[in-house]
Design a protein around this nucleic acid. Structure first.
Length: 114
DNA sequence: GACATGACGGCAG
DNA sequence: CCTGCCGCCATGT
């Protein structure tokens, strides 16, 4: 069922720590659909903005804010990230590799932290 | 059903 | 580093 997929995406997004970011592909890989990155983006586009989910912490594989257009009805993606200490330059996250949070590597400690 | 369009990613070249 | 091209899958014409 699609709604289960949506829910799974949203639950992972909720686990992204403040001040860290992840990618569509990483979330898709974590869900077992290694080639479903587009559906992760689609899932986030189904949210009603502004949203309680930290959807602004999800970017593409290059750390580019490709989803900024969907934040028109609330605080901008840049503002939300900047508020967490993440710097943006030309729609790209600075120091992206260091801020990258991989669900596959860090989901266990994230769950234990609950 | 055919086609176009995405918050994508991998792989040439 | 950048540029296409292709595979992917849900949605809208």
């Amino acid at each position: 069922l699609v709604t289960n997929f949506l829910q799974a995406v949203y639950e992972i997004v909720e686990l992204i720590p403040t001040g860290r970011v992840t990618t569509y592909g990483a979330i898709a890989h974590c869900l077992g659909s290694k080639q479903g990155a587009r559906m992760v983006g689609w899932a986030l586009s189904q949210l009603h903005y502004p949203t309680p989910y930290p959807a602004h912490r999800v970017v593409n594989r290059h750390g580019i804010l490709t989803g900024k257009k969907h934040f028109q009805t609330g605080p901008s993606m840049e503002a939300l990230l900047l508020a967490e200490g993440i710097l943006i330059k030309n729609d790209q996250i600075e120091n992206f590799e260091a801020l990258f949070w991989d669900p596959n590597q860090e989901i266990i400690p994230a769950l234990l932290a609950l």
